[in-house]
């Protein structure tokens, strides 16, 4: 019994320390403008920022903007994932294609997606479609690369077994390739979800299509520091939420699979 409570003590300690860290951060934030280390015009009081946050949460316009951002995020992520799964499976299954596309992929992938912003603006103007180009381009590679790895990772013995039993292509895809590639796909999806959110907000900031990102830029140019900080906190919470949800999905669907792979973001 005594030992049992010792273990519980340890996890309570962890939670407690985490809370202390969070509170400590907020206190320090509050103290900096209070003590005059930084002008509250540039770093507003944390109490003001939190109050603004509550205000925003009651504001319908805020939710509408959030909805726009998340719509761009969801469309971009879906399009990128579908394209990446189809192309990745084909390229991954055919060694000839894999070799032929290697250079192309290695050149296109490191191009920073934001470099395409001017092009997207030229093509689609200041609209969500321009933002989608950027979002799709950035998140596509995350999934694509993982799917290729996953499809190529099919165990050679398992593949030979399948062939010797004369499984059809469709059977092989659903019983052999899909289970092997699934963990990779989910990892790619999680990374892509984070990247897509970053670029959805970035695009709104730079291109100016309506959404949270544009609101951030407007707050800055209007000198509304409190609003700016409140929105930064919102984006952080949003990012946290996306991470948690996709990590949860990954863990739930892969409880049988213990894989640790290197991860790449952006």
């Amino acid at each position: 019994m005594r030992v049992l409570s010792a273990r519980r003590l340890r996890s309570t300690r962890k939670v407690l320390l985490g809370v202390v860290g969070l509170v400590g951060f907020l206190v320090v934030w509050q103290l900096i403008p209070t003590l005059g280390l930084i002008d509250p015009e540039y770093l507003p009081y944390v109490t003001d920022v939190l109050a603004r946050l509550v205000e925003e949460f009651r504001d319908l316009a805020f939710w509408r903007r959030l909805g726009l951002t998340m719509t761009a995020w969801a469309i971009g992520l879906t399009v990128a994932t579908l394209a990446a799964v189809v192309l990745g499976t084909i390229v991954g299954l055919v060694p000839l294609l894999r070799r032929a596309t290697h250079t192309m992929v290695e050149f296109l992938r490191p191009i920073p997606s934001v470099a395409l912003i001017p092009l997207a603006v030229l093509m689609f103007g200041l609209q969500m479609r321009a933002a989608l180009v950027i979002i799709v381009y950035a998140s596509f590679w995350q999934v694509f690369v993982q799917v290729i790895y996953g499809v190529a990772d099919v165990d050679s013995v398992a593949r030979d077994t399948a062939r010797s039993f004369g499984l059809t292509l469709r059977e092989r895809l659903s019983y052999l390739v899909l289970p092997t590639a699934l963990p990779y796909l989910l990892t790619g999806l999680r990374l892509a979800a984070a990247v897509a959110l970053i670029l959805a907000i970035t695009a709104e900031m730079v291109i100016g299509n309506p959404g949270l990102g544009r609101m951030i830029e407007l707050s800055r140019s209007a000198g509304d520091a409190v609003g700016l900080y409140a929105l930064v906190v919102v984006t952080g919470l949003l990012g946290l939420l996306v991470n948690l949800v996709f990590r949860f999905i990954e863990r739930r669907s892969l409880s049988w699979h213990q894989s640790v792979r290197g991860e790449e973001v952006l």
């Binding site: 900031m205 707050s219 930064v232 990012g239």
Partner: peptide, 11 residues
């Protein structure tokens, strides 16, 4: 880590 990095530019 979850804050989209470009958001830090205005700050």
């Amino acid at each position: 880590r979850a804050i989209p990095p470009p958001v830090l530019i205005p700050v």
